[in-house]
């Protein structure tokens, strides 16, 4: 190691000190604590009792909520990321066209992102309300029957998902930024070759934007697997556990049913699960990602 190198290393680690401290204090140590907790039966009220892997055994063999919760969480994340990606991408493409009032539109679509989640939850829950809500009024106006949006297994997760996608203004902005970074010459080249809008999209926009898509899909999957507020504030996991999302289930198990050891065990399994999903997306991306200069 040269001298300059070690000086650089010292500087780098100095710059990284706060982040490393954060990593240690707010991620690694708490995780170590959770690993410890997961090996105990602990109600949070009296001293924990060591039970080895008992919690994990219970989780995989006896837990009546775990599987339901995994399915609910996956459905939610899939729905929001799929619908959200299409929505955000589509709006971003529209915003990137020659349109009137682009600045205003850009703000309009971003705005939901900055609404406090609790505020969003309140207004959406009321709009979804099945007996008197405005969505059902609109349905009835066009001659359809009322839908029990949040009261029916089939619709609860999509309804909460739609509410979440509404707040995807940040993704729109990120896509838009990506679109604006595409050099005009590339698009013109397609035009010269006689290509139409579809060709431009398929052969220039999509490949050039694939890193942005990857970023959005990854952060979208990670954050939406961790969905919490809608279940906590509106549905409490109902109907029939169809919105018993993992983080809410972990929360309920610990804070409401006083099984902190057990909830730590679920957290770890869930953490591993998120890591697995993330890694899968990341690895599969090599197949569809396009790197400039490759």
């Amino acid at each position: 190691m040269t001298r300059a190198m070690s000086r650089n290393a010292r500087a780098a680690y100095l710059f990284l000190t706060p982040a490393i401290l954060g990593l240690v204090l707010y991620t690694l140590l708490p995780i170590a604590g959770i690993v410890g907790m997961s090996l105990t039966e602990w109600n949070g009220l009296v001293a924990p009792a060591f039970i080895g892997l008992g919690n994990f055994r219970e989780l995989f063999t006896q837990d009546m909520f775990f599987f339901t919760s995994v399915v609910a969480t996956l459905k939610f994340a899939l729905f929001t990321v799929a619908v959200g990606t299409v929505y955000a991408f589509f709006v971003a493409i529209l915003l990137n066209q020659r349109i009137y009032g682009r600045g205003i539109f850009r703000s309009i679509f971003f705005l939901p992102f900055i609404v406090p989640s609790i505020g969003a939850v309140i207004v959406w829950a009321w709009m979804y309300e099945s007996n008197f809500g405005v969505f059902n009024f609109l349905l009835q106006t066009i001659g359809l029957d009322k839908v029990k949006w949040l009261g029916e297994e089939a619709t609860a997760t999509p309804a909460l998902g739609l509410m979440t996608v509404w707040g995807f203004g940040n993704f729109i902005v990120i896509y838009l930024a990506g679109l604006q970074g595409i050099p005009r010459t590339y698009l013109e080249a397609v035009e010269i070759d006689g290509g139409n809008a579809w060709h431009k999209f398929r052969h220039v926009t999509l490949p050039l934007l694939s890193p942005v898509i990857l970023f959005n899909v990854l952060t979208g999957v990670v954050s939406n697997l961790q969905v919490f507020v809608p279940a906590m504030a509106i549905t409490k996991g109902s109907p029939n556990g169809s919105t018993l999302y993992m983080v809410y289930y972990i929360f309920r198990t610990g804070f409401q049913n006083n099984r902190f050891g057990y909830s730590a065990a679920i957290s770890l399994v869930f953490f591993a699960f998120i890591a697995l999903v993330t890694a899968t997306i990341f690895l599969s991306s090599r197949k569809w990602m396009f790197y400039e200069g490759q």
Binding site: F228, V247, I250, S263, F271
Partner: peptide, 8 residues
């Protein structure tokens, strides 16, 4: 980023 905050 992968660990939900509620857990810790």
């Amino acid at each position: 980023m992968l660990m939900p905050g509620t857990v810790t």
